[in-house]
């Protein structure tokens, strides 16, 4: 055991010697993403965040490299290791919760490179790992409240990828948001079992509409299909992760946008001060890492605007808790209750 540690130490020292050569005043970040940087969803949110940081700090002070579409989990290990070992980057970002175990391993080997990964609140107890998450239940709740006010058919459809992570968090928050306005409104939830199957996601949206939904929402990169279906059928759309304004045309209502630049700037400052990690960040409405944006084409009434502002204020102040008692199994139970109501109809 000690021998292995020693080897790592020697290696790290030897490597640190060469690494310092590459560094100048530029802060360099490398980021790995599971889908395309322009997917209008999760990966794009990080790319936009990095771009925003660069605009803020200037290209002479901040540069970043990305590898996108790395959905093969093991490929991530190759890229992340290559970046960490190159010594060219002060911060290596693994943007996807599936990359966590890889970060855990690399961080113990490359102790003077700072790593960041998400979305998860877990730094593995290491001093050179930041982790980040988004309270996507907050935006989900907000969207749910608005959707509940806008629905006339009293049926709302949600298309999600697989029933885990951010997608599930958003779905639970959304359902609770709707229920807070009127528990009798149906929220039909379909997880299609894939992040990328656009045809199936499209047909899931059509099925929602056929079952009376006049509002749709959803997460992950395959929602471009449901957005198109919503457009075709003139049904309203609520989105998450990135702005889908460009695609949604006049059926978009509101988008929950992840502003990763908020936490990236803070991370960069800390790394500059020598703090390589050990903390986790959560984007919330309160710290303005989550921003609710209305679609440009959506004409919002004063009444609804008041509801929107009230909801955000409530979530920020802690008066509204999007998913009560997240720590235990309550969230799951409440979901089961929802299911029960649906099948009674």
């Amino acid at each position: 055991m000690k021998k292995r540690l020693l080897i790592i130490l020697v290696f790290v020292l030897a490597w640190a010697g060469t690494a310092s050569l590459a560094q100048d005043d530029v802060f360099r970040v490398a980021a790995l993403m599971p889908s395309a940087i322009n997917d209008l969803a999760f990966s794009q949110s990080m790319y936009d965040g990095l771009t925003a940081v660069q605009n803020e700090l200037g290209a002479e002070a901040f540069q970043f490299d990305v590898q996108d579409s790395t959905y093969i989990v093991d490929d991530a290990a190759v890229a992340l290791r290559d970046w960490a070992a190159s010594g060219d980057y002060q911060l290596v970002i693994a943007h996807g919760s599936q990359y966590g175990p890889i970060v855990e391993e690399l961080a113990s080997e490359f102790t003077d490179v700072s790593f960041a990964w998400g979305t998860r609140q877990d730094t593995f107890g290491m001093d050179n790992v930041y982790s980040y998450a988004a309270a996507s239940d907050e935006g989900g709740y907000f969207n749910g409240v608005l959707a509940a006010h806008l629905t006339e058919s009293r049926v709302i459809g949600l298309v999600g990828p697989i029933e885990v992570g951010d997608g599930k968090l958003y779905a639970d928050g959304f359902a609770n948001g709707v229920a807070s306005v009127d528990p009798d409104i149906d929220v039909n939830i379909v997880f299609i079992g894939s992040f990328s199957d656009v045809p199936l996601a499209t047909e899931a949206a059509e099925t929602h509409i056929a079952n009376g939904a006049d509002i749709l929402t959803g997460t992950a990169q395959m929602v471009v299909g449901p957005i198109a279906a919503a457009k075709e059928n003139d049904v309203l759309w609520f989105g998450s992760d990135s702005s889908q304004d460009e695609l949604s045309g006049d059926i978009g209502v509101a988008f929950q946008i992840y502003k990763w630049d908020v936490l990236l700037l803070d991370m960069i400052r800390k790394i500059g001060e020598g703090d390589l990690g050990g903390e986790y960040y959560v984007l919330t409405l309160e710290n303005e890492g989550l921003v609710m944006e209305f679609d440009q084409d959506f004409e919002i009434s004063d009444e609804l605007m008041a509801v929107a502002e009230e909801t955000i204020a409530g979530i920020v102040s802690g008066e509204i808790v999007p998913i009560p008692a997240m720590d235990d199994d309550m969230a799951e139970e409440s979901e089961e209750e929802d299911d029960g109501e649906d099948s009674e109809d």
Binding site: P34, Y71, I72, V73, G96, P101, S194, F195
Partner: peptide, 9 residues
């Protein structure tokens, strides 16, 4: 572990 897609693993 997987990301839910076949090739993910």
């Amino acid at each position: 572990q997987t990301d839910g897609s076949p090739a993910g693993f």
